[in-house]
């Protein structure tokens, strides 16, 4: 069981991580590099008259920097894959079928819990934007992801209104409590870039999670084929 979970997680995480890294480098990284021109002071947005062109040359591939990004993206999605395939093992032991097609639903659930729920109150942020203390935000992030993941599981596998009601409470609570927000807005980066970045980060996150779920379901089914199927 351990071997099947770990093997499935490594394959699924690596495959989904590579795709996520490619999408991030193409769609998200240029917006981030553009924002860094404002963060570093090369461009100034909130000057007396803003005549800075909206289109900037942000440079091409930086082998060292982008190579590290690929490595860390693969690591992050491998981490997610471990948790997802572990949960798939638990689900299939309890008689739920898991395959690539159902894995897409798992991926959507993971995206909602890990990417979309925290972004609802703490959207993906560009370098240089105003934000509250990082440790406070990290604590809120982990709490929100944990609560939302439990909520998604309750919606998917719960059998009565008590479970679904608890899921609604868990989904709403982090946002009713509220994420740590900055005292003042001082970011030098144009809001248009912030909006584009958040949208792209979420879109790439959705694609990556659906891919991860699909791969995880596929590899889990492959690993367990031939094993006795639970009733």
């Amino acid at each position: 069981m351990y071997g099947k979970v770990f093997t499935g997680a490594l394959f699924a995480g690596f495959a989904a991580g590579l795709i996520a890294a490619a999408l991030q480098l193409y769609f998200v990284q240029p917006v981030l590099l553009h924002a860094e021109l404002y963060e570093g002071g090369d461009l100034i947005h909130f000057g007396s008259e803003s005549t800075v062109p909206a289109h900037q040359d942000v440079g091409g591939i930086d082998l060292m920097r982008d190579g590290l990004s690929v490595l860390f993206t693969v690591l992050v999605y491998t981490g997610y894959a471990f948790i997802m395939v572990g949960a798939m093992a638990l689900a299939s032991e309890r008689g739920h079928s898991v395959d690539a097609r159902r894995g897409i639903l798992w991926g959507l659930g993971g995206f909602v819990a890990v990417h979309f729920a925290p972004a609802f109150s703490l959207p993906p942020e560009l370098p240089g934007v105003a934000a509250a203390d990082v440790v406070a935000r990290q604590i809120w992030w982990f709490g929100t992801v944990a609560a939302s993941a439990i909520a998604v599981a309750l919606i998917a596998f719960g059998r009565n209104w008590a479970a679904w009601g608890a899921a609604v409470v868990l989904l709403l609570a982090p946002h009713v409590i509220g994420a740590p927000q900055p005292e003042v807005f001082t970011g030098p980066v144009p809001p248009e870039l912030g909006g584009e970045f958040a949208g792209r980060a979420l879109g790439v996150g959705l694609a990556a999670w659906v891919t991860l779920g699909c791969f995880a379901g596929f590899f889990w089914q492959r690993e367990t084929q031939g094993a006795p199927q639970p009733a």
Partner: peptide, 8 residues
């Protein structure tokens, strides 16, 4: 940043 983690 791209994954939406709190960074700074």
């Amino acid at each position: 940043h791209a994954t939406g983690f709190p960074c700074h």
